[in-house]
Structure formats: C-alpha cells, structure tokens
C-alpha cells in the first residue's frame, strides 16, 4: 500500500465537490458530488411524474368512458353544459383554454432561458446580471403560478371539483403537483437572490446556482410533457 502524503489524503468527507480553484478535491468520476446527486434526484422524480401522468391518462380515459355511457353517478358531479360539450366532442377538450395555457407555457419556457443567463452571468462573476436574471426567472415562474391559480379558478367555476369526479381529482393533482414543484423552485431562486443582494453569491457558488437551474429546467421539461399530454391531446 502506498502511503499518500497526509496532505493529499485528508480529503475531508464533507467535500461536496463544488468547483474549487485548488486541485485538492477530486472525486472518483471527476464529477461533483452535488451535481451527481442532483441528477440522481431528478431521475427519481421522473418515476414520480411518470406515475402521476399515467394516473391522469388512465383516470381521464375512465372518466370519459363513464360520461359517454351516461353513468348517473358521474354525470351528477358536473354541470349539464359541460356534460353536453364533453359528450359532443368525445373528449375533455372543451374544459381547456388553449391560448391561455399556451401563453403560460411560453412564459415558463422563457424562464428557462433567463435561468441559463443567470448561470452564465455568475460564471463570469457578473453580479449585476446574476441578480437581474435570477429576479427575472423568479418573476416569470411566479407569473406561471399566477396563471395556474387563475386556471384553477376557471376550472372550478366551470364546475370541475377536486372531490367530484376522476377528471377533477387527476387534473388538479397532476398540474397542482407540478405547481408545487415550481413554487419550491421559486423559493430557491428567491433565497439565492437574497444571498446575491447580500453579496454572498459569487463565482465560487456558480455550482449552487447551476443546481437550482437544473431543477428549474427539469420542472420546465415536465411542463412540456404535461402541456402536450394533458392540453394538446385531450
């Protein structure tokens, strides 16, 4: 066994592998621990959203079948005009306001771009732009959430209840769960912003921002799926 000089071997366990200027830190794969962990976490989120999207697709299909067959239990949970529209179209499309949702999808997509700009800015240690882009991203995310709140109230006013039928339960759960993820993302962005204004978000912490970015893009990607699967293919 070759003994390595103590200085090199003292690789403290709390190394989280953010990018350091010294060469002291190295990991077996040459990747940072935090980043690897983030990707692993996002991987497990795939399964979570996969399960929820499948649940939505199944629940919606079962709901439509019952509506078209005229099951009184299901029809009793919806206002008559919605039932007529569903039965006429043979789909749940009449519920959705595609232009509105398209706009909010666009806003979320936009926030991904501002997020990468924030990361670029911090890589160059450009404090002003880092703050600017972080704030923009958080703001765009908040607009998306506001849009979702508005959309939920519209659904509610149209007569779709969370505890009424399968469609209500599945739709509110899937989009709401995504909304919770966006909200958590916004909180993280705001926390970073606070740090930035206190002058504590410098180049050394580019990776922290990058990790928040990864999470943010993931949430965006999930919305790409939800938008197509739920709204465009009703």
């Amino acid at each position: 066994m070759t003994a390595i000089p103590v200085e090199d071997a003292v690789e403290v366990a709390d190394d989280h592998g953010s990018d350091h200027h010294d060469d002291g830190h190295h990991t077996s794969l040459g990747l940072s621990n935090m980043k690897l962990a983030m990707w692993l976490f996002l991987g497990s989120e795939c399964l979570l959203f996969g399960a929820l999207i499948s649940t939505y697709l199944l629940s919606k299909a079962r709901f439509l079948t019952e509506v078209l067959a005229g099951n009184p239990e299901v029809l009793g949970t919806l206002p008559a005009n919605l039932i007529e529209e569903f039965q006429a179209e043979g789909s749940v499309e009449p519920l959705f306001d595609i232009p509105f949702t398209s706009a909010s999808s666009f806003i979320l997509l936009m926030s991904s771009v501002t997020m990468v700009f924030a990361h670029q800015a911090i890589s160059k240690n450009d404090q002003r732009n880092t703050r600017l882009w972080l704030a923009t991203t958080a703001a765009l995310g908040s607009v998306f959430i506001a849009g979702q709140v508005y959309e939920f109230t519209t659904f509610y006013n149209e007569g779709l209840r969370f505890d009424g039928n399968l469609l209500g339960s599945a739709l509110y759960t899937l989009t709401g769960f995504h909304g919770v993820h966006v909200t958590v993302g916004i909180i993280m962005l705001l926390s970073l912003l606070v740090l930035a204004f206190r002058g504590k978000l410098n180049q050394d912490r580019a990776e922290t921002l990058e990790l928040v970015g990864l999470y943010w893009h993931f949430v965006d990607v999930v919305w790409v799926l939800i938008f197509t699967i739920v709204y465009l293919i009703p």
């Binding site: 794969l29 990747l31 991987g43 795939c46």
Partner: peptide
C-alpha cells in the same frame, strides 16, 4: 467530459424506466 456519461446513466436510466414501465 470524461465520465460525463454517468449523468446519462442516472437520469437516462430513470427516463427509460419510467417510460417503459408506465
């Protein structure tokens, strides 16, 4: 990057798994 494909491993395996299983 060297060993960058580990990301594919972690994330891609989960994606493929989620898609196939569901």
């Amino acid at each position: 990057m060297p060993n960058g494909r580990t990301f594919y491993l972690c994330f891609g395996a989960a994606m493929v798994l989620a898609i196939l299983v569901f």
